[in-house]
Design a protein around this nucleic acid. Structure first.
Lengths: 342, 342
DNA sequence: CGAATTTCTGTAAACGGTTAGATAGCATAT
DNA sequence: ATATGCTATCTAACCGTTTACAGAAATTCG
């Protein structure tokens, strides 16, 4: 048993006595081809089971209709939803999506960029690795006029499309909410401060404290590397050992917040009475933990969709790479039991 | 500012006076090229910043080094980990991974198959949509000798590589565990019975009951369509209204199990004393819910990795498409508070 | 030293589309 | 009748590799 032969426009040409160029044009609905010929050709193509060879077309056009996506790791709820949004939109427009994971490691990101570049992707969607602080590996795309859309974790110093949420406002809102619940000593789980999302959340936190005349206590701000469950555990331990203990906690993600809640519960601390907690992302776990975790919703799927739109609607002519075009999505507080005191 | 010119082997050829064919061979480490020439050529290539055009190479070889992956939806923990495993392995071997989501809808799956086929993927990894019962859309790949590896949700009637866990054994183990905890009336949340994973889990459940001389009560077996949170809620409501109430529950996934736990708790039912519960998948939420959910671990990442290996090591010569080659991974029970009675 | 090998490199034809420019046929205008 | 323009199609080059085959140069051998 051997492979079915793949038929080409040359086979079609021979079969119905048209030149390959006419076949090609007809199949692409070029109006210079007569309706009669177009119909004939399409029928023959269907009958013979013709399928366009995308590779040949891509080579000729140097256009692959493939979007590359760079993220830290797929199996995080936010990222999975983001990709989901990109994929759905891109596919509707006839594009493929190829993904690459950096594991939050800078070197991997650089290497992935090279691989995606060599794959001749038509556009790139990036959420930066935690480590990344240098962005020169993205310049190759700019040089070749390949549109880049940064999502969520975006660089501040690199001009491009950016899709993100208002992290500052979200941090402010979350903190203000805790203040309104009567918290006076509010702790913060802070992420890597060179990453916009975490820096902005922290700034929102700080300003909310200041504007409500609460002192900023450095002891209450814990700097995380990865905001993992383990780190959350350690940080909670440290916090609860303080005297006086904090009475509120704004965590930069849900994982660390949930970890803190679980640790606190085990140590007989009442959430939210002794410690009101709010997280960030509204991951599925937020509604599962008991008491359910208040959080800030992230429209991840929508962000993916918008990013895909930006990449695909990018126009060579009007685009000016010296300008950053931002799309800022709003967030919402989801108040659950973990922070409800009044 | 215009694009940087892309340099080709012709540019290299002109620059260092070798023919394009020699360049090409040298860059591919062909041994017929002298070491001296190879060295010279590689140096020149590096210096001029030459990058191979994958499209041209793919066209010529009709080999894309791209793996397609078909799943229901990315943003489910199991699937995300699976993809993660595929991606890591594939990329190490110099392959790209393109994904497509069916949303558990048959028509989407058929359409995605066509798109991936037209993308000339070198191999395909599939976890079936919930709905799918006909597999003829995979035949085009078989015809073209494109290897297919089915993962987790696999077809029974289609010969190919398959990577899955022993769902029957897992169902049996989980049920037996509940029996050992003293449960006499064990309910089961069953998934679509035409999907191997759910059918096998249920059979394991049934046999465990029989072998321990417990009656099979049809009232206690609830058939789900999607095993969603909402369905879990409804099913729990139905179960808890029974008289006598079941004292154990084996759910085919964690989502429905967690939903049931939350509903039961809200209605004053003690988990595990009144109702011992065990789920399936060991999703992150299993360790978050209170009481923590016992579950069956799924080595999702590893399954993805193995699937990628199978696809990439697939050898045209030795492969016999009339044979199904299965890799069956073992599972483990993770016992947590939701089922610990003794 | 010439013949036979071996080693290395070059020529040219693929792979399968797309597209600029040429051409042919025909209707209309001068 | 010739020029002009329009429509429909074709020719051939091109995208950038790979590779069968040919050929040249270097080496070995009798």
């Amino acid at each position: 048993m051997r492979e079915k032969k793949k038929i080409t426009i040359y086979d079609l040409a021979k079969r119905i006595n048209y030149s390959p160029s006419t076949i090609s044009r007809a199949l692409n609905d070029d109006k210079t081809i007569s309706k009669k010929a177009t119909k004939l050709i399409k029928e023959a193509a269907a009958e013979m089971g013709y399928r366009r060879n995308i590779l040949a077309a891509s080579l000729r056009n140097s256009k692959t209709n493939t979007i590359g996506i760079m993220i830290a790791r797929i199996n995080r709820p936010f990222v999975a939803s983001l990709i989901s949004g990109v994929e759905d939109y891109a596919r509707k427009q006839g594009n493929n999506v190829i993904i690459s994971q950096s594991d939050d490691i800078y070197e991997n990101e650089v290497n992935n960029a090279k691989v995606l570049f060599d794959s001749r992707i038509s556009g790139l969607i990036v959420s930066l690795a935690m480590e990344t602080q240098d962005f020169s590996h993205f310049e190759q795309f700019v040089d070749q006029r390949i549109p880049i859309v940064f999502v969520d974790r975006v660089p501040e110093e690199f001009n491009s499309y950016k899709v993100l949420i208002d992290n500052y406002a979200a941090g402010y809102k979350a903190t203000k909410h805790l203040i309104e619940q009567g918290c006076k000593r509010i702790a913060h789980f802070a992420g890597a401060q060179h990453r916009n999302v975490y820096k902005d959340r922290m700034n929102g936190y700080l300003d909310a404290l200041k504007e409500h005349n609460l002192p900023v206590d450095k002891e209450l701000i814990i700097k995380f590397k990865t905001l993992s469950f383990e780190e959350g555990h350690k940080a909670a331990k440290k916090l609860l050992a303080l005297d006086p203990m904090p009475d509120g906690l704004f965590s930069s993600n849900d994982t660390a917040a949930v970890s803190a809640i679980m640790y606190a519960k085990k140590n007989g601390i009442n959430i939210p009475k002794d410690l009101a907690v709010i997280g960030f992302n509204d991951d599925p776990m937020a509604s599962i933990v008991d008491p359910a975790l208040s959080s800030v919703t992230h429209p991840a799927y929508q962000m993916g969709k918008i990013a895909a739109q930006r990449v695909l609607n990018h126009s060579e002519e009007t685009y000016d790479s010296s300008v950053s075009e931002m799309t800022i999505l709003s967030t919402e507080l989801v108040i659950r039991e973990s922070s409800k005191r009044v």
